Amino acid sequence: MTTRTAYLVLGMHRSGTSAVTQLLSLAGAELPANVMPGDEHNEKGYFEPWKVALLNDERLRAGGSAWDDIFAFPYRPLPRKDERAWINRAMALMGEEFGQARYPLLKDPRVTVLLPFWRTALADLEIDARGVIPVRHPLAVAGSLRRRDGFTEQKSVLVWTAYMLAAEAYTRDLPRAFVGYDALLSDWRAQVKRIEAAHGAPLPTLDERAAGEIDKALAPDLRHNAGAGDLAALGWPGELAAAVLAWFEAAARDEAPSTAALDAAAAELSRRAADMAPLVSPTARDLDEARSELRETKAAVGVLEDTLKRDREVLEGGWRATIQRLDQHREILRAVEAQLDAILAEGGP
């Protein structure tokens, strides 16, 4: 039986996950059937399985959380029967999106904070997993989220911290590679060597043709937000993010830092959550549900507008055809009338 291996791109939104996913997909990992297209925030595309993203949003809300909940870490399991139902949905969706792909490529940032759930689904499908975790300065991520979502820097760096803690904690027993975002854009070949060494296996099909495509894809113009500024100036959220960033930057340099610093950061986040999560998390969940309903309403309006446009075109087309036929009949009638008039003028046949 052929072993199937999933490549998991883990980390926060806007942190370089799209660039890593593009690299892996060009090197032979297989994208899902339905991926999110590009927009004004990311012209090259997100490479995210949008159906998986919808399921993940639902699952987060079921646990009283949301993708932008600063306390989305640690994972919140549901009662066993409920959890099993969600796992079954995830397994079915993997089949729909990837079929029997040997190297499915799963990139949705929400997977990061839901990884215990997704790892169970993958294990039940007998799919191994390898992780790639891009490392980008949280202030660069915050700049992007400020423009896209209007988030404050404090909120963005806390969400980034939660995602990065989850990415590390939930992959400690997996083959994984930490990849600096700037280093990836500067010399992706060196980063591929690091990924392959960390995974203990080559990327599926990294040939010369793929290398040429990657050269075009990973251009320096992807650096839309430089990571600059003093995290400490953001108070405790910045101090927490700075400690986490230092660990990940060291890991991306292959320095094998102790996880004690991350465990301490996770403990501090949990301490804050004990005081604030009952207020913050339900609000994040409710806002996410409102955003979801708004997206669905916009989609429904769009479908209705398209339907009305098509119906109008069909009706107008029918009217035009009817008018054209009437004009033709009028011409025939005029010709007949002219013939009758000619016959009458001649006194009959």
Score class of each variant (00 low, 15 high):
249 E>L: 15
265 A>Y: 15
265 A>R: 14
241 A>W: 03
245 L>I: 07
253 R>F: 01
237 P>I: 15
265 A>W: 14
242 A>V: 07
261 A>K: 06
249 E>V: 15
253 R>N: 06
272 R>T: 00
247 W>F: 15
275 D>K: 14
258 S>P: 02
275 D>A: 09
260 A>P: 02
269 L>Y: 09
248 F>W: 12
269 L>K: 13
235 G>F: 12
235 G>Y: 08
270 S>C: 06
239 E>M: 09
255 E>V: 01
257 P>V: 08
242 A>D: 14
243 A>W: 01
273 A>P: 02
251 A>V: 08
239 E>P: 00
261 A>W: 04
251 A>E: 09
241 A>T: 04
263 D>N: 10
270 S>K: 06
236 W>K: 05
237 P>Q: 14
264 A>M: 10
259 T>P: 10
265 A>D: 04
242 A>E: 13
255 E>W: 02
247 W>E: 09
247 W>K: 01
263 D>V: 06
257 P>K: 11
244 V>Q: 03
262 L>E: 00
274 A>H: 07
236 W>V: 01
236 W>Y: 06
276 M>F: 08
267 A>T: 13
266 A>W: 15
274 A>K: 11
275 D>G: 02
261 A>I: 04
252 A>T: 08
272 R>E: 00
276 M>G: 00
256 A>C: 07
239 E>N: 03
242 A>N: 13
245 L>E: 04
244 V>S: 02
272 R>F: 01
271 R>Q: 02
260 A>C: 06
261 A>Y: 01
269 L>E: 07
245 L>T: 02
277 A>P: 07
250 A>T: 00
269 L>A: 14
235 G>E: 03
276 M>Y: 05
265 A>S: 13
266 A>L: 13
263 D>Y: 09
253 R>E: 04
245 L>D: 05
276 M>S: 00
240 L>C: 03
240 L>N: 06
275 D>R: 13
251 A>Q: 09
244 V>L: 07
237 P>N: 11
246 A>I: 02
237 P>Y: 11
267 A>S: 05
